[in-house]
Design a protein around this nucleic acid. Structure first.
Ligand SMILES: Nc1ncnc2c1ncn2[C@@H]1O[C@H](COP(=O)(O)OP(=O)(O)OP(=O)(O)O)[C@@H](O)[C@H]1O
Ligand SMILES: [Mg+2]
Length: 741
DNA sequence: ATGGTGGGG
DNA sequence: TAACCCCCACCAT
């Protein structure tokens, strides 16, 4: 099966240039000729080529980057949604050429174009090679002739033509420029793709493979050999790729199993028969928040709450229903050990998302939040001191769709969903504007979200015994009231940090528009000032990205740190309520929880209730059922209270925007949004339109297209010859590059 | 199934 | 060398 030198395939590897930075430049073209960096917390994760030419490389500390280049413009890239979206579009374009596309990260794609070469071989001129040729000093210096004789030269040259066309289409559709590598396997295509860096492509002919591999030096530069394996190899005296080529299998066997050993050897020679595997939709959706130090359970809880709220939005866009919830922490571990994360997971009762993922009720949120905290307490003993540096949550194990009712019925189902979502958007719009209005004019407003918070608080405190699926008693889990009530004693500092800047409270969405996300977020937060800002930050972490606009203040009596970690909407609610009910908090007998201190009141009006009832009666029957009793009980109280003592200081609400993306679901599509797996549109179908379609529909279109398009090679596969006994260091990710079928 | 590891961007 | 914010496959249990 495996011929001595197998050049049958033509693989293209595509790698977007300085991806995050480029996305930001597309969003704001005025940045194009300026040095730009994209940051996450205090780290600059990438920079554009203007900045790179001035010494600002990838992954530098903000501090160092600004030292090297004070004029550097920084944009916060902690929210990946724009990058994900652009990434999906890129892959969709590639799938326009072939469905055999494998994604790697957000900005790389492998394409096996072997089967489509015949469509281009005539157009391709063997004497005019698109892009660069590996080994050539000047462009267009390659001599004719095929030293190999298997025809690979012509195929690869045609592949270079395809690569060129793909890159052109990507630019046309997204404005993003890429590098590309063309070779007869994935390993080599990836290795050459970056040989000529910005916006260029390189083809590698098999007779120069040795030259390429020998130029690599360290084994670490072979994809699949990471830091651990690299160290292990070093212990064997194997440092360079050449060392690896010359090392005996027996030597490798002392540290690796047979499979791994052979593969290591193959890779060192540039041999790789790993197939391009079609990427599906992501199997996990997660969010994380890193920081220097968190040691209070209150902050933990509010950070998790924020993550959960955001995650539910992502889930909504995704559309699938998860069956497990995972919670993860990273503990500070006295410098040395790294990667010290631990996680706990738990099944999600199917009934929790019974009404789907599009509108998740307060009860579901509360249940999830309690589960998060339960899992957290399995990892952290909060009765002792603790020091965390990262929190994350994620959904996994998405339930698969009923196998048979694909196509038509699903289409209609989705249609209905989108319609309901349009209602959602309208509602949200109403809410939002009300929200805005109240923000500027401090009218008290009946905001259903206040009610939401209220409900959430209630459901947290009272064990939701009435909940249909078994009341879970939240032993260890604190409720939000407790959370907010605890705090330290600080003097109240009310300060207006900055004045509102134009778009502060985010654009209105155009509900009916086809595509989401306008360019609206002109944003251009010129930050810079913030690098200093947290320089001497006291006990705690980040805040870096914040600054910006908005009147920032922490309401009387709430711990600042806790407040900061709350979801922005809930912050707004609290502020709103605070404004409508200025200082002098009256001690009110609180309903459920124990120790009252200086209470912070959250009130709900009957108008709010009406609204709530309406919504729930319209849809979300299950949630409605559960929440109705609760509401009535709440209503009788008319007021609920968050008790706490002490106060705090100012904080930026930050976190604008967001509301803009729910719309991905609007125009006839549905979940789509960020699904990384879109398929190829048939000829004549605009790829961006196609990519906006629900994934299932894309799949069907493609399937149909394939069927009608003659008998192609439908290499049905799914063999999983499970290997057994593995010892020592098995290759895991190396498998990606070597696994057969 | 769960939790950890190593690797990828 | 991990800092940040993710995603994957694989492994032992
Ligand atoms: N360790 C990382 N942490 C966070 N983001 C990362 C990390 N590695 C890569 N990324 C993001 O993924 C994107 C693609 O990564 P990649 O390694 O291709 O670099 P790049 O920015 O695209 O630059 P290049 O032009 O060299 O390809 C980047 O823009 C980068 O910000
Ligand atoms: Mg890149």
């Amino acid at each position: 099966m495996l011929l001595p030198a197998d050049h049958r395939r033509v693989i293209i590897h595509l790698d977007a240039d300085c991806f995050y930075a480029q996305v930001e430049m597309v969003r704001d073209p005025s940045l194009r000729d300026k040095p730009l960096g994209v940051k996450q917390k205090n780290l600059m994760v990438t920079s554009n080529y203007v900045a790179r030419s001035m010494g600002v490389k990838k992954s530098m500390w903000i501090k160092e980057a600004l030292e090297a280049l004070p004029d550097l413009i920084l944009i916060d890239g902690s929210d990946l949604t724009h990058y994900r979206q652009c990434s999906s579009e890129i892959s969709a374009v590639v799938r326009t050429f072939t469905v055999d596309v494998e994604r790697l990260g957000l900005d790389e794609n492998f394409a096996d174009v072997t089967e489509i070469l015949e469509d281009y071989i005539e157009e391709s001129d063997p004497n005019k090679i698109e892009g660069r040729v590996y080994g050539d000093k000047e462009p267009d210096e390659t001599l004719p002739g095929d030293p190999c004789g298997c025809g690979c030269r012509e195929r690869l040259i045609a592949g270079a033509l395809v690569a060129k066309k793909i890159r052109q289409q990507i630019v046309k559709a997204t404005g993003i420029t890429c590098c590309a590598g063309v070779a007869h396997n994935k390993l080599l295509a990836k290795l050459v793709s970056g040989y000529y860096k910005p916006n260029q492509q390189t083809v590698l002919f098999p007779w120069l493979v040795h030259q390429l591999m020998n130029s690599l030096n360290l084994t670490r530069s072979i994809p699949g050999i990471g830091s651990t394996m690299y160290k292990t190899l070093e212990e064997l005296g194997i440092h360079t790729v050449k060392d690896l080529q010359n090392s005996s299998l027996a030597l490798l066997h002392s540290k690796f199993d047979d499979e791994t050993s052979k593969r290591l050897r193959d890779l060192s020679f540039g041999i790789d028969d790993a197939p391009v595997r079609r990427s599906g939709r992501p199997q996990t959706i997660g969010l994380e928040d890193a920081f220097r130090k968190v040691n209070s359970i209150d902050v933990v809880q509010s950070k998790y709450l924020t993550l959960l709220e955001r995650l539910l939005k992502l889930l909504k866009e995704d559309g699938r229903i998860p069956s497990t919830l995972r919670v993860c922490v990273r503990k500070f571990d006295t410098k040395k050990k790294f990667g010290n994360r631990e996680s706990r997971q738990t099944p999600i009762l199917p009934s929790l998302f019974a009404s789907g993922v599009q509108n998740v009720g307060e009860n579901t949120r509360a249940t999830l939040m309690n589960q998060v905290m339960e899992l957290f307490h399995k990892m952290v003993d909060t009765s002792k001191e603790f020091h965390l540096t990262l929190l994350s949550i994620g959904f996994t194990k998405f339930i698969e769709r009923a196998s048979h009712e694909n196509s038509i019925s699903r289409f209609f189902f989705k249609r209905k969903r989108s319609e309901t979502e349009e209602q959602d958007i309208n509602e949200e719009k109403g809410e939002k504007s009300a929200h805005l209005k109240s923000f500027s004019t401090f009218s008290s407003v009946n905001n259903s979200k206040i009610h939401s918070l209220e409900l959430y608080l209630e459901s947290c405190s009272e064990s939701d015994s009435y909940s249909s699926e078994g009341g879970r008693n939240n032993q260890g889990s604190m409720n939000i009231k407790d959370m907010l009530s605890k705090s330290h004693n600080h003097s109240i500092e009310r300060k207006i940090l900055k004045t509102l800047k134009g778009n502060s409270s985010n654009n209105m969405h155009k509900q009916t528009s086809v595509t989401n996300n306008e360019a609206s977020v002109s944003n251009c937060d010129q930050n810079n000032g913030d690098s200093n800002c947290h320089a001497a930050s006291s006990p705690l972490e980040d805040l870096s990205s914040a600054d910006k606009d908005g009147i920032a203040r922490v309401p009387h009596g709430i711990d600042e740190e806790v407040f900061q970690a709350l979801p922005p909407e809930i912050q707004d609610e609290i502020i709103l309520d605070y404004k409508s009910k200025p200082p002098d908090p009256k001690p009110v007998p609180k309903s459920t929880t124990g120790s009252p201190k200086i209470p912070f009141k959250v009130k709900t009006t009957s108008a709010t209730l009406d609204k709530y009832f309406k919504r729930d009666s319209v849809r979300g029957p299950r949630e409605a059922r559960e929440t109705v009793p609760k509401i009535s009980s709440t209503e009788t109280n008319a007021e609920s209270v968050i008790s706490h003592h002490s106060s705090n200081e100012a904080a930026p609400p930050e976190r604008k925007e967001d509301g803009g993306e729910d719309k991905s679901a609007a125009s006839g599509s549905s979940s789509s949004g960020l699904s990384p797996s879109t398929l190829q549109p048939p000829d004549g179908v605009d790829s961006s339109v196609f990519s906006a379609l629900p994934w299932e529909i894309q799949k069907e279109i493609v399937e149909e297209q394939r069927r009608s398009l003659s008998s192609s090679s439908a290499s049905r596969v799914s063999n999983s010859p499970s290997y057994s006994g593995r010892r020592r260091e098995a290759s895991s990710s190396i498998m990606k590059y070597i696994k057969k079928v």
